[in-house]
Simulated scan of single mutants.
Amino acid sequence: MRKHNDMGYTEDSGTENRAIITVLGEDRPGIVAAVTGILSEHEVNILDISQTILQGTFSMTMLVDVAEMNVSFKALQAELADLAQKIKVQITCQREDVFRYMYRL
């Protein structure tokens, strides 16, 4: 079901409970485990995941459900930002509706 929001575009209903997480950096063991460990700890469900390694560069994109999350969205973003510094990758976490608005054609 599509709905019109106050930003002037249509979106799938339910996107307010979903987020897009992207990870980019030099490939090394443990990246997936570290990111998914935080998500599991906070009751964030992975709905879809894609990852690839291109000439040593790791890239992962996840669509996650944050409806049952046991921390605030900002707290999750902060924890992922701390992890990014620790494991030397770039991690972004955006609500799906914001992500789709930013990258619409």
Rank of each mutant, 00 (worst) to 15 (best):
M1G: 12
M1L: 12
M1Y: 07
M1C: 08
R2G: 03
K3F: 13
K3W: 08
H4L: 13
N5R: 06
M7K: 14
M7W: 12
G8P: 07
Y9A: 07
Y9G: 03
T10E: 15
T10P: 01
E11N: 08
E11D: 04
D12Y: 10
D12K: 14
D12E: 15
S13C: 06
T15C: 13
T15Y: 03
T15R: 05
E16K: 14
N17L: 04
I20F: 07
I20W: 03
I21P: 00
I21G: 00
T22V: 05
G25T: 12
E26S: 10
E26C: 02
D27Q: 06
D27M: 04
D27G: 10
R28K: 15
R28D: 00
P29D: 02
P29C: 08
P29T: 01
G30P: 11
G30D: 10
G30Q: 11
I31Q: 00
I31Y: 00
I31G: 00
V32D: 08
A33S: 14
V35E: 04
G37C: 07
I38N: 06
I38K: 13
L39E: 01
S40A: 15
E41P: 03
E41K: 15
H42M: 05
E43I: 05
E43A: 12
V44W: 00
N45I: 00
N45Q: 11
N45P: 03
I46H: 03
L47K: 14
I49N: 06
I49Q: 11
I49S: 13
I49V: 15
S50N: 10
S50W: 13
Q51K: 12
Q51H: 11
T52F: 08
T52M: 07
I53C: 10
L54Y: 11
L54G: 05
L54N: 14
G56Y: 05
T57R: 12
F58L: 05
M60W: 03
T61C: 08
T61N: 07
T61Y: 06
M62A: 14
M62Q: 08
M62H: 04
L63I: 14
L63K: 13
L63G: 06
L63T: 13
V64D: 00
V64T: 14
V64E: 01
D65H: 11
V66R: 10
V66N: 07
A67Y: 10
E68S: 13
E68G: 03
M69G: 02
N70W: 10
N70R: 13
V71G: 04
V71R: 04
F73A: 02
A75Q: 15
A78Y: 09
E79H: 06
E79Q: 15
E79F: 01
L80S: 06
L83H: 12
L83Y: 09
L83A: 09
A84S: 15
A84L: 04
A84D: 03
Q85D: 12
I87V: 08
I87F: 01
I87P: 01
K88D: 15
V89Y: 01
V89N: 00
V89Q: 01
Q90G: 05
I91A: 02
T92F: 09
C93W: 01
E96T: 15
D97A: 11
D97L: 04
V98K: 12
V98T: 14
R100A: 11
R100G: 01
R100V: 10
Y101H: 14
Y101V: 08
Y103F: 13
R104W: 03
